[in-house]
Each structure stands twice: as C-alpha cells, then as structure tokens.
Amino acid sequence: MRARAPSLGSVALWALVGTILAVLVLPTLIVVPMSLTGDQYLGFPPRSWSLKWYTAYFSDAEWIRATLFSLEIAALTTVVATILGTCAALAIVRGDVKGLGWINAFTLAPMIVPHIVVAVAMYLTFARLGLTGTVLGFVIAHTILALPYVVLTVSATLYRLDPALEMAALNLGASRLQAFFQVTLPLSLPGIATAAAFAFIISLDEAVVSFFLSGVHVKTLTRKLFEDIDYSLSPVIASASTLLVVVSIAVMAAIELARRSVKR
C-alpha cells in the first residue's frame, strides 16, 4: 500500500495537538526534576542534582507522620468503600429493586456536589461530634467520596456479566450465597480490584475535605502539602509531591493495563 502524503491541514492539526499535549504533560511531571535539585530553593531547571530533599523528606517526622496517616486512611477507606460499594452495586444490578433512577442519583450525589461544599458541611457536623482530626472521621468522609466511583465501576462489571451464569448456578442447585461466592464474585473480581484501587487513590489524593477535617497535629499528606506550598518553597515539597504522583500514576496505570488485558 502506498501512503498518501499528509495534507497541510493534518500536519497543522498534529503540530497543534502535539504542543497542547506537551503543555498538558510537562507541568504535571515538572515536580520530578524539581525534587532532584541540589539547590537550597526551588527553581527550574535545577542548577545541581541531588537526592538530598528525599533524605530530608524521609527524616522529617512531620512529613512521615502525615504520609503514614494518609496511607492508613486510604487503606481503611479502600476496604470500607469497596465492601459497601460492591454490596450496593450488586443490589442495583442484580437486585429486584424499584426506583433505580433515584437510587443512582442518591449514590452519585457525592460526585456532583462541589468538594468545598462537602468539606464545609462535613466540618460543621463532624466538629460537633468530635470527629475532626480522627481516623474515623476521615474514613467516613473519604469512603463517601469514593463510593460513587466504586459503585459505578463494580456495576459496570456486573452489567457485563451474563445473569444467566448466576441463574445457571441456582438451577444446578447452588444457594444464593453459593452462587455469589462461586460464580459472581470470582468473575467480577477484576472490576472489584479496579474499584478498590480507585478508592485508594481518591482517598490518597483528596485535598479539600482533608484540608478542613485535619487537626493541628493529625493531618493528611495533602493538607501538609497545602500548608507548606502556601508559605515555603522548599524543594522537600517537590519530593513529597513526586512520591504522591508516582504512587497515583503507578496504581492507575496498573488498572489501565489490567483493564486492557482483560478487554483483549
């Protein structure tokens, strides 16, 4: 086959899109070289290279405490949101329920309401109950924010699953629970794992609600970043950001790759 010469228009389109993509990606990844600077202050490009800001990060008790707290919240959120969301998705897709439109609107609401509104509302209520700055308070808040994504992801998987499989299991003598654990659960595990990864990243990256729910001593990594960005330009922030970015991208890329291999 002979290739047609690209037209001037398509060359221009390509050049435009290439530029847009570069501008889209570069500021996202610029924290990586910034974190590797050997200088005392942030700047780009760095004049010298060093890992010293990572050393600074890992030896700073406050950063480590915030990081571990964020990881703890994210892990707990993942467990709670995945279980609650999977149950709900099961009811929505495979249950004999009425008013699906309302149930969906109800479930997706935390996705639609601006996070600043959620943050203020939760702060006002949680503060009165002594839940601000506690693990429980954060897990409740992040689970609520992650639930819509879990429900959507798991129900998409369940919709793709032929309901005849569960019916076949029942027909062959399995109880409801046997049918679920032997057939439905193993077959929707990839979707549930994806949902769990979403929940983890949503919790880890969440900044607005975390900002309001954090206390003076108990704060998430994002709250710590937020504070420090506002009044210092120390490269240690770039190191912490880089770690956050790397974890997020690694988890999401793993999901994407897993999804592609399943689709194939």
Binding site: C87, V97, P110, P163
Partner: peptide, 24 residues
Amino acid sequence: GGRWSPLAAMLLLSPMALLLIAGF
C-alpha cells in the same frame, strides 16, 4: 428473573445508604 429479592437488595443497599444519609 434470577434477581435478588427486594428484601435482600434493600439489605445490600442499606449500609451505603445509612453512611450517605448520616455522613453526607
């Protein structure tokens, strides 16, 4: 057909519903 009964579906939905009502 072959769906979870309305009661079972309500039970499955209720943990999420309670959390959303109380926390959101």
